[in-house]
Design a protein around this nucleic acid. Structure first.
Ligand SMILES: [Mn+2]
Ligand SMILES: [Mn+2]
Ligand SMILES: [Zn+2]
Ligand SMILES: [Zn+2]
Lengths: 128, 128
DNA sequence: ATTAAAATGAAACCCATTTCTATTGTGCTT
DNA sequence: AAGCACAATAGAAATGGGTTTCATTTTAAT
């Protein structure tokens, strides 16, 4: 599968941001610097492709607005999301992968995926 | 805080189900057995109270529809959700609680809460 | 019984996402 | 170069869960 023009623009934005961004954030940025950038529908479609390609991960923070970010191809990670400043710490390793074997043994359950996000107050905000 | 009539009806339904149910599920059930059961708004409000009382937990499976279930007061747990039959295994202990101390040490991040759900194929569905 | 506070239901509203339809762009064939 | 088939796109409209608003009904307190 090929990267369409829309996908490339979305990738550009994601490369320049490096924070979790919603589809609308991304679309807004694109439209800021170029009035005739792809429409919102195309952004959604591009994100869908990029996610299934493993170049981007979708993150669900439970607030009804999915966020996206670049990841190392095929990998994923989780976050410590600060409820005060909304910044997040991007964890370097998945805490769940190592549990999969145990879960399969104990419950006969084949793990295919998971959601994990941790909320709280970050170091900076605690200091204030 | 007192349990209103609406809350009690919602609790009744949740006691009788013992599976993750959406607000609309719950409302539907209530309306099935009683045409003039509380409206959907009241169901949402009741769930909100019950959650903040710690009697019910809200579960986010990332599909935009929150589910609810009774829990031991003040406790919470996570699930292995089967993508084939949609049933879930209710885990007996939280896998994250024990990591909190480490996270605080390593990142200076005070953990307040988290989302964790695991998806895959359950034992029964694998057998088929 | 009177009155204030809490709970309720119907409808309006919100907003991210999806669907639908018409249009445009791209590559390939002749 | 012109024609054709198909993928990609835009934009509007529909969807759908959830929340807000507000008038009305219940409940509790005096
Ligand atoms: Mn990240
Ligand atoms: Mn459960
Ligand atoms: Zn993970
Ligand atoms: Zn937990």
């Amino acid at each position: 599968m090929r990267l369409t023009k829309g996908c490339k623009k979305v990738l550009d934005v994601l490369e320049s941001i490096h924070e979790l961004s919603s589809a609308q954030d991304i679309h807004g940025r694109m439209r800021n610097e170029d009035d005739k950038a792809p429409g919102l529908t195309t952004v959604y479609r591009s994100l869908e492709s990029l996610v299934s390609e493993g170049l981007v991960q979708a993150v669900d923070l439970g607030d009804g607005e999915r966020r996206y970010e670049l990841v190392k191809p095929g990998e994923h990670h989780h976050h410590l999301v600060c409820e005060s400043c909304r910044q997040s710490v991007h964890l370097d390793q998945c805490l769940i992968a190592e549990l999969e074997e145990g879960i399969r043994h104990k419950y006969g359950f084949q793990v295919k995926g998971h959601i994990l996000e941790i909320f709280g107050i970050c170091k900076v905000c605690t200091a204030k």
